[in-house]
Nucleic acid binder design. Sequence first.
DNA 1: AGTTTGACCCGGACGC
DNA 2: TGCGTCCGGGTCAAAC
Length: 270
Amino acid sequence: MPELPEVQTVLDTLESRIKDREIIDIKVLYEPIIECSKRTFRKKLIGQHFRGFRRRGKYLLFEMDDLTLVSHLRMEGKYFILDEDYPLSKHDHVIFYLDDGKQLRYNDVRKFGRMEIIDKQDEYRDFHGLGPEPFSKDFNAGYCRKYLNNKKLPIKQVLLDQSFVAGIGNIYADEILFAIRVDPRTRADRLDDKDIENLIKETRKILKRAIKAGGTTIRSYTSSLGVTGRFQLSLNVHTMKKCPICRNDIKKITVGGRGTYYCEKCQKEK
DNA sequence: AGTTTGACCCGGACGC
DNA sequence: TGCGTCCGGGTCAAAC
């Protein structure tokens, strides 16, 4: 499931492939994907060009001439850039016909992804109640301390809360907590100043490393594989069998309804 | 009133 | 072959 680094990779890839292309037609094959009506969607977007490619949390923001097209991939959303004669997949839900003869196809097995159109001048700061970007200066020790102080939920659950910090999903939450040696079930308000400092530092380090790994994907990108943003992640705990540090078995538990991997030897509850 | 939980949307994967 | 169950990101309603 695409998290911040994957979304960034998808955006970078699409920018290199469709920047300044015009949408000359649109087919919506599965309507619930788009937040507005098919008519409105087509009317607003046909004739617009892909000018800017930005990200907010896990949202892709396509800045067009007069509006912004927002796309969320949720679980399995993917974009493909294909020739018009390429066979349609049963999971292709929205097709953008581009002025160079290519098609941008949105493909989503789970049909969980969503697209919406927003005004261009909308500020993305409060977008969908998202918290600060992990790389922004707003995501600092003071902010975290204040946010976590009155949270009794497991820290893992708070990391997944997009209003705390934007862009972290299940995989990176596990990796971040492993990196700072904190048990995922630890009450958020029990993290001390050192933990918080580590949390910020490791979050940035891990996401940055993943984005960098994504750059490799862009270079090796082929249209038939789709712009998935997926790449070989070097994971330490998530879906792992053995702890890379102490070689003990990695435990799998449920925290806040999510599958959670951790090492009971290396990650301590506070 | 603010915080936390849970249902929902889907279909592939997996177990029996 | 065929059921039933599980999984998950974000939203929203319900419960605490």
